[in-house]
Structure formats: C-alpha cells, structure tokens
C-alpha cells in the first residue's frame, strides 16, 4: 500500500515538473540579473566614447536611463561597427546600443527596440575647406566612411564620388585631419559629436547636405527574448514621452540645437513609431 502511494506521488511530481518545463518556453529574463552587458562604440565623441575608464555620450545615457527604469544596470564594453550584429547573435553582449541603424537585413538577425534617435546622413570637412557646400560638390572628392555602416553603402551609390573606406571612425577622422581625404560622411548626429569635441577643433559639419534616407537607431538584442524586448520598448516609450530625452540629447550634443533650428524634427523619433520598428522580424507599418 505504502509502495503504491509512493509511486503515485512520484508520478504526479514528474508530471508536474514536465508540465512546468513545457509551459515556460521563454529564456530567463535579461533584466533579472544585476547587470546587463551592453555593447557600445568607444570612438565617437558625443554619441559613445571611452574617456579614460568611463563611457559617455548620448547612447550611454539612453542605456543608463532605460535600464534604470527596468531595475538593472549596464556593463559597457566596446564593440566595433562591423561586429555589432554578431556581438548580439553570438551572445557576447545582451544589448548593443551603438548608433545602430535599423535595416531589413539586421532586423532578420536581431530584435531591435527603437528608434531612440533619428538622423540624416551628412558630410564633415575641415573648417578651412570651403569647396563642399552641397551634394553635387562631392563629385570628384575623396570621401571616407568606415566599414560595417549604412553610410558607406550609401556613399558608394553617389556617382563621381571617390569612396575611401576605413575600419574605424577614428581612422576616417584622422585621414580628414591629415588631408588624406576631402570629407567624412556618416550620420550627422555622429558628425556633430566629432565637430563639438575639443579633440577635433578644425572640423565642421556642412549644413544642408542630406545623403540617402533617414537612419533610425535601435537597441539590438538577441531574438527569442520578446518579453524583454516589449519591456525595453515600453521603457523607451516612457522615455520619449517624457522631457528626459530632450534634456539628455541637448546635454550630450549641445551643438545640434545650435546648428539646426528644426533639430527635434530631425533627431527625435515619434513614440508612436516604436511599434513599427520594435520587436519584429521585419519592420512594418
């Protein structure tokens, strides 16, 4: 009798365990750990820059703000542009917040939460160089972009432009300072970050040049964490709807409002667009 009761209890326990295991298909939440590993850029002043031992810039502030809302903290690590996707897909970083534009190709591999910022693509030149005033002036000029970015792809579509590729942002900016190239082209939010830096006092962003379509920055995370993705999206929605976004943007990139009267229209995303781009295999209307 006792044996039968023991066997029945064991079977019931096994069935309960099996049902529990089958029911919880979701991986453990990224945000229940004390820290979340976040891949960021280290060579882009204004947006994401390693200054001594501290990361700073708008991307860094966004990461801190959103993770604080979710009750956790970021643990930053530098990620080169061309490894932003694999840093997430191979599990080296939980999130990547690194001026990472949302594209169809990337959305198929990682989940994005965004946009947390939007930006046109522009051109930066030396302050004493007045040859480039509009898009057609780029014909015959040597223009640098770094690998793993959407900017490089867009530049190569412009006829007559001499494309010069480098592996890092720093490589392009040094090439411009050293007169090896005539201009650097990437997202204007990044260019303004360089132009406002005390490290690069001889550089300026050419106003009014708008190359290709608007870039929308997203926070990348591994697919399969949709619940976390929705939590992060909702945190971003709150952030965009509050005055914090404007305060943080103008603190990190004060030169942008000075240079562009319509800067909010160009750089601040609409919170209503979050559902179109976030937590999807393919951005959709």
């Amino acid at each position: 009798m006792t044996t039968r009761i023991t066997r029945t209890a064991a079977l019931l326990a096994l069935a309960t365990l099996t049902a529990t295991a089958c029911g919880t298909n979701q991986p453990p939440s990224l945000f229940t750990k004390g820290q979340v590993s976040v891949g960021v850029k280290s060579d882009q002043p204004g947006t994401s820059y390693l200054d001594g031992y501290d990361f700073n810039g708008f991307d860094i502030t966004v990461a801190r703000q959103l993770l604080k809302k979710l009750g956790t903290e970021p643990n930053f690590a530098a990620v080169p542009s061309e490894r932003r996707t694999t840093a997430v897909t191979e599990g080296r970083q939980d999130l990547v917040i690194a001026t990472f534009s949302i594209t169809d190709e990337r959305s198929a591999k990682v989940d994005f939460v965004g946009p947390y910022a939007t930006t046109p693509q522009g051109v930066m030149v030396r302050k004493d160089d007045h040859r480039i005033k509009n898009l057609s002036d780029l014909r015959g000029k040597s223009v640098c972009a770094w690998s793993g970015t959407t900017s490089g792809t867009a530049l190569q579509k412009i006829p007559g432009l001499v494309f010069s590729g480098k592996t890092t942002a720093d490589g392009c900016v040094r090439a411009l300072e050293n007169h090896q190239v005539d201009a650097v082209s990437t997202d204007t939010v990044i260019l303004y970050g360089f132009a406002q830096s005390k490290q690069y006092p001889n550089l300026k962003v050419v106003p009014g040049i708008d190359i290709d379509s608007t870039n929308r920055y997203g926070i990348a995370m591994q697919k399969g964490h949709r619940e976390d993705c929705y939590k992060l999206r909702d945190a971003l929605r709150d952030y965009l709807n509050s005055s914090d976004w404007k305060r943080d943007f103008t603190t990190e990139l004060p030169v942008v409002p000075d240079a562009d009267a319509h800067w909010e229209a160009h750089y601040k995303p609409n919170a209503d667009d979050l559902d179109k781009y976030s937590c999807r295999d393919k951005p959709a209307p």
């Binding site: 169809d104 792809t153 867009a154 379509s213 608007t214 870039n215 929308r216 393919k282 959709a284």
Partner: peptide, 9 residues
C-alpha cells in the same frame, strides 16, 4: 536595398 535604413513603415 535591405542593407540600407528601412523605409517600409
């Protein structure tokens, strides 16, 4: 171009 910023939405 799927490698360009998406404009679908």
């Amino acid at each position: 171009d799927p490698t360009a910023p998406t404009c679908r939405p």
